[in-house]
Write a protein that binds this DNA or RNA. Structure first.
Lengths: 158, 158
DNA sequence: GTCACTTGATTGACACGTCAATTATGGCAT
DNA sequence: ATGCCATAATTGACGTGTCAATCAAGTGAC
């Protein structure tokens, strides 16, 4: 009987559910605060953060996708929505006619700057303040163990 | 200077990102496995699990929503898609003409049963096996501290 | 009985995500 | 220069999620 046939215990499953449902609840809570504070979704925030840190407040679409770890089609769709709202603009790339330069508009920069402080404070209130320093460290170790394990598994398949 | 104006440190922010991104990666990995193993989304699985455990393999729509903690409109949309695929059926409720009884079809039961073992084993492989017993316990404590804190905050607003 | 109110559930509009095309350009071998 | 393939980015189809509006049926006041 190989270990790959064993199923988690009741307790293991309970912890798994707590873990994943809590992460979801946190994401939802932060997303809602960001939305009501500044009208941004968390995707918007991610994009604006990357652009605001980029040289000249602009990036090639593919560089942006790589930076934030998104699939290109996801980014394309999202940029379309953000462009409609005037947060970013698309310009032709001078060095490669296929390329698109995504530039942060003045309006986008303002919205992002206004959102940033409140968002970071919300992270502190919802996450950091909920945990003791030991728990915070433990959370980091757990996340990192999970990620290493997941990466190993995924790589093995590839 | 009130503490509500402070922003997380670089380290705190790093841990937050690891935490939330890892949870996301786990959800994605498990969802992908479930999908390729059995053609179910994780939402499908949640619904089928609840129905399969219910008396007579059926539940009132509102009871199902409460059981799995979904908004009713989300459930309605999802049930529409599952109904099209023959996994569940909607029947009139005998005691309340407004109500809908959601029943697990034979096909739905079969798909669920076939998916269950592999899905539980995937949870073990991706989550439980990645952690030492101490880390697993720590993950549970962290999740529960986060949830308590979040609930307190949310309640205070209400 | 009927009017207002509540409750059960669905619907429509729209944001978001993924996958599989598609379009257009770049770049290279011949 | 032509033909072929790789690359940059977008598009379309569809599943998923939220919010607000809708609709139908129960319920209580009068």
């Amino acid at each position: 009987m190989s270990t790959t046939r064993r199923v988690p215990t009741r307790d293991e499953l309970r912890i798994w559910r707590e873990y994943i449902e809590t992460a979801d609840a946190l994401r939802a809570a932060l997303g809602a605060r960001l939305q009501s504070d500044s009208g941004l979704s968390s995707g918007d925030y991610t994009v604006l953060l990357a652009l605001s840190e980029a040289d000249g407040r602009q990036l090639r679409s593919s560089a942006l996708a790589a930076q934030i770890g998104w699939e290109r089609s996801r980014l394309s769709h999202h940029l379309g929505r953000m462009e409609r709202r005037g947060l970013i603009a698309r310009e032709d790339c001078p060095t490669d006619n296929r390329g698109a330069e995504i530039v942060l508009t003045a309006a986008g920069a303002t919205v992002f700057e206004d959102s940033n402080g409140p968002h970071l404070r919300a992270i502190r209130e919802v996450f950091v303040d909920a945990l003791t320093p030991e728990q915070l460290a433990a959370a980091g170790e757990v996340a990192s163990a999970l990620r290493v394990h997941l990466t190993d598994q995924t790589d093995r398949i590839t």
